[in-house]
Design a protein around this nucleic acid. Sequence first.
DNA 1: GCTTGATTGGACATTTTTCGTCCCAGTGCT
DNA 2: AGCACTGGGACGAAAAATGTCCAATCAAGC
Lengths: 355, 355
Amino acid sequence: MSNQAAILSGCESMREILDIQKQLLPDLVDTMKKRYTILHHIMISGLVGRRTLALSVGATERVLRAEVDFLKEQGLIEVEASGMRISGAGKELLERLEPLVKDLFGLAELEERIRSHFGLKQVIIVPGDSDVSPHTKKELGRAGASVLRKLVGENETVAVTGGSTMAEVAYHLAPATPMKGCWFVPARGGLGESVELQANTIASTMAKKAGGRYRLLHVPDHLGEEAYQSLMQDSHIAEIIAFIRGARIVVHGIGEAMVMARRRKVDPETTESLRRDGALAEAFGYYFDRDGNILHKMPTIGLRIEDIHGMDHVIGIAGGKSKGESIASVLKHGHEDVLVTDEAAAWEIVNHLLS
Amino acid sequence: MSNQAAILSGCESMREILDIQKQLLPDLVDTMKKRYTILHHIMISGLVGRRTLALSVGATERVLRAEVDFLKEQGLIEVEASGMRISGAGKELLERLEPLVKDLFGLAELEERIRSHFGLKQVIIVPGDSDVSPHTKKELGRAGASVLRKLVGENETVAVTGGSTMAEVAYHLAPATPMKGCWFVPARGGLGESVELQANTIASTMAKKAGGRYRLLHVPDHLGEEAYQSLMQDSHIAEIIAFIRGARIVVHGIGEAMVMARRRKVDPETTESLRRDGALAEAFGYYFDRDGNILHKMPTIGLRIEDIHGMDHVIGIAGGKSKGESIASVLKHGHEDVLVTDEAAAWEIVNHLLS
DNA sequence: GCTTGATTGGACATTTTTCGTCCCAGTGCT
DNA sequence: AGCACTGGGACGAAAAATGTCCAATCAAGC
């Protein structure tokens, strides 16, 4: 926990700067990490040879040689015929680098830990806590948009859910060539919430931002059985729903079960049943308990859970300390591929999986 | 002056981070500047084409195209068939970049201003004020060492002076291949000062740090005429002095005339004569007035002014607000090639040349 | 003192990236 | 319709990065 405190206490402007720089120089962090790692290894080893070093940092001899030449050029190491060692300037630099690296690597380690534990393809953590800082929520949106932009192929269909986080993602989405022909559709109907947070709105915003097209689904999310059946008769609606179910990518937020139930105006007895069963999280209309089991099955308009399971990319985006547990339960369900979250939630998640 | 205040008030940690990063990624700042310039131009232009833009930022069409592709990839600009314009994310980034750029460009502009006004080859300004921050003085030393390392060729002789700044340069000097065979020599005798700040000490430290060799000159700096003559009879000393005068590079500090006179224990009547003539600065044993004229000519052991004038590289290193005027007068003398100073002194210099 | 196993730095062919230079199909304004 | 722009594709030359050896050298152990 002290580790956590230390990381969270890092200078705020540092993250701001790094974040800005990452946009102008995406591989800045990678390069810095690489060179730091090498320099650090050299310091630890004392006097070490090129091949030995290449082996231990996992680089081919030739590329490491280029790096070593660079470090030598910068005067950070001294290289003699018997090997290389760190120089005074190098040692000083390493010390000054420490806070920076702690930050950079800290998050990277967290990402890897969560990724491997839940068997995800990718985890992205932005610094901060969405609960307390609107800025962090924006970063979350930016990161989410960036992931989506990289994952989406040509002429694909992307299903999205609602929520304030997803709205942020939509806002930060930028055009990319492969996205031109894409369709954005709501994962579900969901007219319960305020307009700007509805899945329909998000889908259309995304399409506009990304230069793609969209189709909407204007039906309430919760329906009685008979209303459901009659709606499905409508060929127009049925066709759109089939279209939605053909999506290969879904981007969704994650919410706290009880908060979502209230916001969606779920009827009292269902709410009570959810509470009894220990509902913790909500995602794409489903409720999950602590262990990732789906609790409540209602007639659903839009994506079914089996559609989700068959997807190419399931991207969950949510942050804030308060949502940590919820995120963990959805991850336990086991069908997520990519998680985008913030530092506070990430720490909650790892704390959760320790207990 | 408000500009100056704004720049000086920039977040301290920002400079620290940038400084660290520059060591691991030397062309980071250049790349950032380049991309910022392009992005900024795009914003100003509104809707602009590739070729037009290439012309206005001074890049060939092909490299600008690569940059544009990158910016598009990052979602910072939107490019249509009719041209490209900045995106929302791009605009936001530019705003967030502003303080960073102000800093980066601010110093760069200062450098260029001083460089062109005095006809120097290169000016390097490190942020801060050596008078108040020891850290800035260290940076000054690091920058000086870096310049020296880049300028020095093989088997060359480098003459150095004494002083605390030069000591810092020596401390930060790191080995470089072409420096292996170099000689470091004191520009003058100068036994007047404390040992660790003497030119002899500096020269030997530099040689040790750089992996080069050194020769020393153990004679007092100020001598009577007859003592001078008798010393020059000594073949040993005469040979070393000839060696020193063969140097093609000199690295020297710059001091305030009166401070130096006192420290060197110049006799009272000479001191008074200096004061009468308006001595302002001291460098490599010579005293300069406000207009860069040499004031005091005494029998000198070591480099003569005509040696300096014939050098390949004359590198002046000094910082601190209090030294601004002195630096300006030495620059006015007109035989400097490279100046390494700090922000506070740089502002003093430009203020000085305005009045 | 000699051998052994490590080191760096040089050399070179190969692959990858970058860059300069055209050209072509559009777009918007006149 | 004409014109002055636009982005993007294509292609070869040039440069940089990289994989793969090898020679000279150093340190240590025997």
